[in-house]
Design a protein around this nucleic acid. Structure first.
Lengths: 153, 153
DNA sequence: TATTATTGAGACTCTTTTATCTTAAAATAC
DNA sequence: GTATTTTAAGATAAAAGAGTCTCAATAATA
């Protein structure tokens, strides 16, 4: 699996927040219901994003979480790094420690190229870009639900 | 992690076999020693490759395993599919079931492109190609050991 | 001030992956 | 045929990832 489940949930939640970003705090419970993710599990994931400064949170009634920056300024890579860390973009494909230009494994060059392609995709894609596309074409953010059902309350 | 540890071990072992392929059976114990992989764990992994027809095995004294085809005719993708299955090349980046051209997630198009790059790399790279490169430049197959130390007995 | 709605933090459980250990089966050599 | 070397298979254990539960902390509001 390319991304951990935590990371995937973090991405879906971030898209949700970017999609309805009017500056207000959204309760995690609302998101966990809409996105069909366990509330407590999602809470832990969003805590990581908050710790990394991608989200900010507010406790108490009318509390919740929101993006600290505009969706145009948040790249997928920000969320992936916050949750899964840099391993995907740094690790050797054959699992050898310290694999790099100086001390490569036989697969290093080819894997470095492929890895760069992944990196570039994650780095060039913003939340807003995906939200725009998702809204236009009513794409899915959950097994059944298109973007539209995420805004009906 | 892109590939499971089992898959990585399977790749390293396959490179080892391709590197010293003179048609003879190599004991798994020899490989597990040289590659610094737990013997029993490696045995189970190689059993999968045997079940998939990538290796053949022989029991008893002078037994072991060997490649069924020439290293020139075994691509990395063969080993990845045998051990990790097709998930890496088919799964949705946002974990949505049935994500595809017909019912995509917002990330589908971009991820499909990146995934194709991974697929192509795995599909175009043969064991022999990596072995050749590894032998020429004495690259690593293990934390410390270059290709050369794998042939000294 | 008491109640309620919310996030934060930690303990705990379940599942999957990784790794080990034991025994069986097959082939060889003596 | 018996002992030895090897893979095959399955049980068990340890570690990591995924998910749940409980309680504390904070803020709003009645």
């Amino acid at each position: 699996m390319l991304l951990s489940k935590s990371c995937v949930y973090g991405l879906r939640a971030s898209l949700y927040l970017a999609a309805r970003n009017q500056g207000e705090f959204i309760p995690i419970r609302t998101m966990s219901d809409k996105l069909e993710i366990s509330f407590h599990f999602l809470t832990k994931i969003l805590q990581q994003l908050t710790a990394e400064g991608i989200l900010e949170s507010f406790k108490g009634p009318n509390g919740g979480v929101r993006l600290t920056r505009e969706g145009t300024e948040i790249q997928l890579i920000d969320i992936v790094l916050a949750i899964d860390g840099p391993q995907l973009l740094t690790e050797c494909a054959l699992g050898l420690p310290g694999c790099g230009v100086k001390n490569p494994c036989p697969l290093h060059d080819k894997w470095a190229e492929t890895r760069d392609a992944i990196h570039e995709m994650l780095e060039k894609t913003t939340l807003t870009e995906l939200v725009h596309k998702g809204k236009l074409e009513n794409l899915r953010l959950t097994t059944e639900g298109g973007f539209d059902i995420l805004f009906d309350n």
